[in-house]
């Protein structure tokens, strides 16, 4: 059974179509890059999976469940923006995740935070943008979820932080889970991806494993992306 199954998704913003008859099946145990140019529908697709956008048509099933309370229990989502109030402290964010997510592993989070030298007493407002992003990633990846949805996790962080983010993703997801990662920084993530999904104007343009692309097309994902989405 597919971990994620989407059929005929349609999402419009006014007269602009963000997703058009979008169907995809994603198995478990994969790290999948959701790739496409700006406005192609990557974020819309991810938001639809986690339930903060409602598509006009189509169905979504995650681990066999429709998007709702039960699916949210197994989905760990990292949005492209900071979502904690600047007035709260780092410790409060850990308490919050522990309270609401039964699969949150506080020990893992504490270990990663100490590695990053993030003080639990610090207020979110006092952290730099990059540190806030790392904190959110730590919280999201400290859950033992089945699906990790990471929307632009490396946008706006330095190369050293990108390596930390990739390492965190690789070391924290379990074999029966899948990670969906949307990004523009293809060359950075290519080495960790199992599959790639290209989205072009709201439609599925390609869904292949990275090995297949290398074997059949004799190209890197980055090169293929530049060819498919050439302006």
């Amino acid at each position: 059974m597919s971990l994620i199954k989407c059929e005929g998704l349609v999402k419009k913003y006014g007269n602009m179509t963000a997703l058009s008859d979008f169907s995809i099946e994603i198995p478990e145990g994969r790290i999948i890059g959701i790739l496409g140019p700006n406005g192609s529908g990557k974020t819309t697709f991810i938001k639809s999976l986690c339930g903060i956008l409602r598509p006009e048509a189509g169905t979504i099933r995650i681990d066999g469940k429709e998007v709702g309370i039960e699916s949210k229990k197994v989905v760990s989502y990292l949005p492209e923006r900071p979502y904690f109030s600047s007035a709260v402290r780092v410790k409060d964010t850990l308490d919050f995740f522990e309270d609401f997510y039964g699969d949150f592993d506080r020990k893992t989070a504490l270990h990663m935070l100490s590695t990053l030298q993030i003080d639990l007493k610090s207020k979110i407002g006092s952290l730099s943008k990059g540190t806030r992003e790392k904190l959110q990633l730590v919280l999201v990846m400290s859950r033992k979820a089945k699906v990790y949805l990471l929307d632009e996790p490396m946008g706006g962080v330095d190369p050293a932080a990108r390596d930390f983010i990739l390492k965190t993703i690789l070391t924290n997801y379990s074999e029966d889970a899948s990670v969906l990662l949307s990004t523009h920084l293809i060359s950075d993530v290519e080495k960790v991806l199992d599959d790639v999904v290209f989205i072009k104007r709201g439609r599925l343009a390609l869904h292949k494993s990275v090995d297949e692309i290398r074997m059949e097309e004799k190209k890197s994902v980055d090169t293929l992306f530049r060819e498919v989405f050439a302006c």
Binding site: G51, I52, K72, Y77, F100
Partner: peptide
């Protein structure tokens, strides 16, 4: 407004609550 309909909503609406 801030907690449910702006940036914090990205956290609140992905919690396993109705």
């Amino acid at each position: 407004r801030r907690n449910l309909l702006r940036d914090e909503g990205y956290l609140m609406h992905t919690l396993p609550v109705s």
